[in-house]
């Protein structure tokens, strides 16, 4: 079983994320990490591989420095990584991104494509559906438990009204929920081994994607203006030194909430 996991490098949680007012794009210059919920997708892929054998390939679109983040998933146990990195792809919206990823995934011809819950920067939680449509494959999203049998996959997922169990033949595209598993920590052996695992870097031309199909030229949405959201008012900050409970009660009483 060949499993492709789509992953993304995002600004680290400790970085104050900002949109560059000049380019109206996310400032990606600071400390970066692998998108946290992508780890659930990597973990699930590794579990399937451990049960059934096969290969786990990471597929990503991002700047050249994203290789650092991909190494973390290689250290967890993924076999190799494919990074599409091209200046002409920078600033891709959903449409541009799904064209590039679909091209990279077509090249891999995986039996199963996994996505994590949502990126911590874009927060769309929709990319799998766009990619599945491009690949013309069945898709199941928000999957909280997954079983893979010979030639088919079954996922259980939560909706607004309860739980659905959905089945599809392979190849298929799956978006997993962050409730599906607890991602493993890389072992020391895994971390050492990751350095020698194959990392391939591809341009749009390598994939046969026209420059005008990705990046800002290939995007159908625009960012017009940046503003400040309505504020909730001043925030009271408490760091617990043993007195937090008393401080909370005082504030609750002061605001007549009891």
């Amino acid at each position: 079983m060949k499993i492709a996991v789509c992953v993304k490098q995002v600004p680290d949680a400790t970085v104050h994320k900002r949109i560059d007012p000049a380019t109206k794009r996310l400032d990606r210059s600071g400390e970066a990490t692998l998108n946290p919920t992508d780890l659930n997708a990597v973990e699930e892929a590794l579990r399937i591989k451990e049960a059934q054998g096969g290969e786990v390939v990471l597929v990503s679109l991002g700047p050249a420095k994203a290789t650092d983040s991909l190494r973390k998933a290689l250290a967890m146990g993924a076999d190799r990584a494919v990074l599409v990195s091209d200046d002409a792809a920078a600033g891709s919206d959903l449409l541009g991104t799904c064209r590039v990823l679909a091209a990279a995934l077509e090249r891999e011809a995986a039996d199963l494509v996994l996505f994590g819950q949502a990126s911590s920067d874009g927060d769309g939680a929709v990319l799998w559906a766009a990619v599945a449509d491009r690949l013309r494959q069945p898709m199941i999203s928000q999957v909280a438990s997954l079983t893979v049998d010979a030639g088919s996959i079954t996922g259980k997922r939560q909706t607004e009204h309860g739980y659905d169990v959905i089945s599809a033949p392979l190849p298929a595209v799956i978006g997993v929920s962050d409730a599906i598993n607890e991602p493993r920590y890389p072992s020391l052996k895994g971390i050492m081994g990751a350095k020698s695992k194959p990392q391939e870097s591809l341009s749009l031309a390598d994939l046969g994607v026209e420059p005008g199909a990705a990046g800002e030229a290939g995007s159908e949405t625009t960012v017009l203006e940046l503003g400040s959201p309505p504020s909730r008012g001043d925030q009271i900050k408490i760091e617990d030194d043993g007195s937090a409970a008393q401080k909370i009660l005082d504030l609750v009483l002061e605001r007549r909430l009891l």
Binding site: L94, L95, C98, A129, A130, R157, T159, S219
Partner: peptide, 23 residues
């Protein structure tokens, strides 16, 4: 937005080469 609508909207965007803005 809903579990179903998000998937439909994104699939439709890919199908029609159309722009999707979310949230």
């Amino acid at each position: 937005a809903s579990v179903l609508a998000a998937d439909v909207a994104a699939g439709l965007a890919a199908r029609l080469d159309a722009g999707l803005n979310w949230d």
